[in-house]
């Protein structure tokens, strides 16, 4: 237990936390946009999987990480359009549509992996970039300023998302169609168009989350690579109360708990491993319980919009 209190271990815990939080931030912030506009997309994990595969395969084939990332974002966009078409245009039940999208992503990524690659391979992913001066700061420098480009983007996305939601016309429209789509419609806002945009923005960011796994952190692809991270990302949106800062807090809490339990085991602290691996989930459930009453869920969340119906 004594070893856990050293600077070296603390630095290690926080460093691992930053890496683990990256895909959660992309996916959960994206889902925040979709849910703010009233659409629950439970297919985030499937989008992450297919995008992770696309990023990996294109990088493996072309040797270009930029092309790999672009492929992931385009796959995310395509799956976002599919989700939008089913849930917004066809007005299908959003939860079921999302599960269908997840299963499609899981199955298709597995099939393509088997047909196009065949076995586990690795690529040279995005390398850490040291920010001049800042990376030399004691303690925080190596933790915050020696990350790969996608990690920097994920964390910068938090203030960018806040700005978009709180300070722009688009943010107001997203909230309007998520809170009262009939009222938004009556003042000339196209509910369908805004929801399409929100879902697609979320899906593109889920694509970035997938890419962050396959070509930045793990540098490989394997069946079911995400292991359910997309579903945790959806939970983080509720945890964060549909606010980017809340999502950040949730992603960091879950990740630091995971990082902490890994260090507990590495240092040989006498805690059963089965208890240690439960820690992040127990903490998240506790935090969700504490924050549940303070959350402001969009009033029209999960409700298809039909003109003339209130």
């Amino acid at each position: 237990m004594k070893g856990l209190l050293s600077w070296n271990v603390l630095s290690g815990i926080l460093n691992t936390m930053i890496g683990l939080a990256t895909p959660f931030l992309f996916a959960a912030l994206g889902e925040t946009f979709a849910q703010t506009a009233g659409v629950v997309n439970l297919g985030v994990d499937g989008i992450m999987l297919l995008s992770a595969f696309a990023a990996f395969y294109v990088t493996l084939s072309s040797g270009s990480l930029a092309l790999g990332l672009l492929a992931a974002l385009l796959v995310g966009l395509a799956m976002g359009l599919l989700m939008s078409f089913v849930s917004v245009t066809l007005k299908a039940e959003q939860g079921v549509s999302g599960i269908g999208l997840y299963m499609f992503g899981l199955g298709m990524s597995s099939l393509l992996f088997k047909v196009l690659i065949g076995t586990v391979k690795t690529v040279d992913g995005f390398k850490p970039i040291a920010i001049p001066l800042l990376s030399n700061l004691p303690f925080v420098g190596p933790i915050l300023f020696r990350a790969n480009i996608l990690t920097y983007c994920a964390f910068l996305l938090v203030p960018a998302s806040w700005w978009l939601l709180e300070k722009t016309n688009l943010g107001l429209k997203l909230k309007a169609v998520g809170q009262n789509p009939a009222a938004a419609d009556s003042v000339g806002i196209s509910v369908s168009r805004v929801r399409y945009l929100a879902v697609c923005m979320g899906a593109v960011l889920a694509g970035a989350a997938g890419a962050s796994l396959s070509i930045a952190q793990l540098n490989l692809f394997q069946d079911n690579l995400t292991a359910g991270q997309g579903f945790i990302a959806v939970a983080l949106v509720y945890f964060g109360g549909w606010r980017p800062v809340g999502v950040l807090a949730g992603a960091l809490l879950f990740s630091v708990a995971n990082s902490f339990q890994l260090w507990v085991q590495v240092l040989g602290v006498k805690v059963p491993s089965s208890l240690a691996v439960m820690l992040p989930y127990v903490l998240t459930i506790l935090a969700l319980t504490v924050t549940a009453n303070r959350a402001r869920q969009p009033a029209a969340l999960n409700k298809p919009f039909e003109r003339g119906e209130s």
Partner: peptide
């Protein structure tokens, strides 16, 4: 010898983090 159990046969990301933790130590 330090041991880490992730609790999952399939969680590649957590297994990666576990290995990184060992290397960092």
């Amino acid at each position: 010898i330090s041991k880490t159990w992730t609790g999952s046969f399939s969680d590649v990301a957590l297994m990666t983090a576990a290995a990184q933790t060992h290397i960092a130590s």
